[in-house]
Simulated assay, not measured.
Amino acid sequence: MRRSRLSVFLAALAVALAGVVAAPGAAGAASLPKHSLIGYLHASFANGSGYVKLADVPAAWDIIDLAFGEPTSPTSGEIQFNRCPASECAGVESDADFIAAIRAKQAQGKKVLISIGGANGQVQLTTTAARDAFVSSVSAIIDKYGLDGLDVDFEGHSLTLDAGDTDFQHPTTPVVVNLISALKSLKSRYGSDFVLTMAPETFLVQTGYQFYGGGSNGGDTRRGAFLPVIDALRDSLTVLHVQDYNSGPIMGLDNQYHTMGGADFPIAMGDMLKAGFPVGDTGKTFAGLRDDQIAVGLPAAVSAGNGFIAPADVQTAVTCLAKNSGCGGYTLRGGAQPALRGLMTWSINWDHYYGWAFQDAHRPFLDALP
């Protein structure tokens, strides 16, 4: 049957609209709140803040990162997740109760991830054998506990760039290439619902605006070393929450140095992730991420890390990033981020220690954002 021009037009419009609706978003993000609260739970150690059972984590938290899976040795690639012993963590629950708590959180729509690395868990995938061991051992942890995905918290010297590795879009350094390959394998294994988050330090990301690796001046080879990982996984990345703490001064897109501890620092650092930036003197540009892939990472309390920001200043920063309003003297180069994913904090345990001050201040604030 021959269709009228109107019916052809309407059919074409329907196809176009369907394409818009079906456009892929961040992996595993479909069931997350538009503005989420993300926190790390000390599951393998106490760290002075006290142990918190997973079942006792309030419903305010949307993504719970179990800290940490750590390697048997820095270059083995074999990751182990050892739950905190009762001698260190009084009241620690059994494995059965822990898994039951994971299921209960998931039934509430929460995402529970294994976080790999941390300050003491240096992971250097120097060989393909280490890469394969990483994939196998991380998969075993995810399968054992029925987790929703993986958080990559590689810090310190886990990632460096070899001399001559100057193109973040085509890295050649084994520890970088093997990590990218491992994460792609895990994504392929678990599919579109797999939640992949990353928590690099500013030194490994935003410092790349000034310097990439050792550069011509023979500087620190870790500078910007996380950029090729973010770029290669950008289509699979659910949330990037750079640690806007424990950081030295970082040059922003205004070519001014920004220091942690106030609203200015997360504003400048968050803008770089949205706007993108030229990478050192490489002639390459790191493309900005989508709003929904960006969250602001902060300490929950003064004892949790250097660079604690008072709640009012946190909310000033988030308001600036989300609405391009109240930014002080800073001008957003990437524009407003209305779908900004939210806030990450180290840690849920420290927030509990301080009477849930971070949660109680910021959960209602995030819920009130449009």
Rank of each mutant, 00 (worst) to 15 (best):
S303T: 04
P33L: 07
Q315M: 14
N217I: 02
G328W: 07
H35W: 13
E70K: 13
H362S: 00
L298E: 03
D165W: 10
L253T: 00
L17G: 10
A336S: 03
Q243S: 09
D351M: 12
L113A: 11
M269H: 04
L240W: 11
G252M: 07
L66C: 10
S4W: 11
I230V: 14
A27G: 15
E78N: 08
F277I: 00
N47Y: 05
D291R: 05
G276N: 05
A322K: 15
A275S: 14
V296G: 04
E70A: 14
P299G: 01
F194S: 15
L204E: 06
G191Y: 06
F226S: 04
G19D: 03
P74L: 05
S216E: 11
A199F: 09
N255Q: 11
N82T: 10
P74S: 08
D292V: 00
K53Y: 04
D292W: 02
G149Q: 08
Y51S: 01
G164K: 11
A101T: 06
P228T: 00
K284V: 05
W350F: 13
A232Q: 06
Q315N: 15
A322M: 12
N349K: 11
L10F: 15
G326T: 08
M198Q: 12
V21N: 08
G214K: 12
A59T: 03
R2K: 07
M251P: 05
Y51M: 04
L273P: 06
Y40C: 05
A357R: 13
P228Q: 00
Y257D: 02
S158P: 10
R2W: 11
D367A: 15
A100R: 06
A339W: 11
G156P: 02
S73E: 12
I180E: 10
C327L: 12
S94D: 13
D65L: 10
K111I: 01
T282C: 09
G270E: 02
E88I: 09
T282F: 07
T173V: 03
H362D: 12
D151C: 00
L150D: 06
L179G: 14
G19R: 01
H241V: 00
A140T: 02
D281Q: 11
V176P: 08
L298T: 08
G215Q: 09
S137Q: 08
A130N: 04
F308Q: 10
I99Q: 07
F45D: 01
A322T: 08
T285K: 05
A22C: 14
G156L: 08
L298Q: 05
S36Y: 03
V177W: 10
S216G: 14
L41Y: 07
V92Q: 13
A322E: 09
A368N: 12
F308H: 15
P58D: 11
A295I: 00
P58V: 03
A140R: 12
G215F: 05
S31F: 13
S115R: 02
V242M: 14
D292E: 15
S31G: 14
A55P: 05
V20Q: 12
L179E: 08
Y257N: 00
S188Y: 05
Q256E: 01
A312N: 14
Q106V: 10
K144T: 07
A310D: 12
G307W: 13
E201G: 15
S49L: 03
G149I: 03
Q243G: 11
Q108E: 09
